[in-house]
Amino acid sequence: MSDTTRVLEVSGLRAGYDGIAVLDEVDFTVGDEVFAILGANGAGKTTLLATLARLNPLMAGTVTFRGTDISRMRAYQSAGLGVGYVPQERGVFPDLTVMDNLRVGGMFGDRSVSERIDEVFAFFPDLKRKLNLRAGTLSGGESRMVACGRALMQEPTLLLLDEPTAGLSPLYVSTFFEAIRRIRVERQVAIVVAEQNATQALGVADRVMVLSLGQKSAVMDASELTTEQLKHAYQI
């Protein structure tokens, strides 16, 4: 991978909560691609993404985003550089309408908010009919669309998606992964997606990292991942 295509470089990362490390010695590099992080419950996927979004402090290691060390930055500073984050839960502002959720995401930036909202509708057309509803009244699938749309309003160059389809119906899962594929192709955004649904994730990912009990066990092309490695990742 050349320097120009290195979007995110993670080196010797250790992170956790209250002094207890959940992740240890995690290294990987993400290019202009869809990079999937697979692993069983408790593997540390959510901790890793929250750390990359700078919502969780690093205990050791470095995170470099497009050549800038963001290891000590606050979340709003790394977001300002172009890191978008969609958390697994509580990804919307429930007291705001769908429209206002999108507007909050588009508060900064040069292009007009309405233009960016139209682009979000291109990926998630169902949101058009829900614009004036409070986000707290939406279904799980609709909330995820709003959360992802709101992150896109920031015009990120790296999008971190934490289990975007967890708990969703099969119809929403397919819709969501199709949207991820289109976002990658049409917006040229590098995407890191942590996902339990390995089959769907491998369908859109260029490369995959398997995380097991807080440690990286493998990074490879998505097409190279074997069933045995997958079983090991999910501790089956």
Binding site: A53, Y76, A79, Q154
Partner: peptide
């Protein structure tokens, strides 16, 4: 105005607001 939306956003989910580039 946008400032009010920002206050509501920070009040209902501060970490999320921070992740959107807002100095909460």
């Amino acid at each position: 105005n946008p400032y009010g939306r920002l206050l509501i956003a920070i009040g209902s989910n501060e970490p999320l607001a921070k992740s959107l580039g807002k100095p909460a």
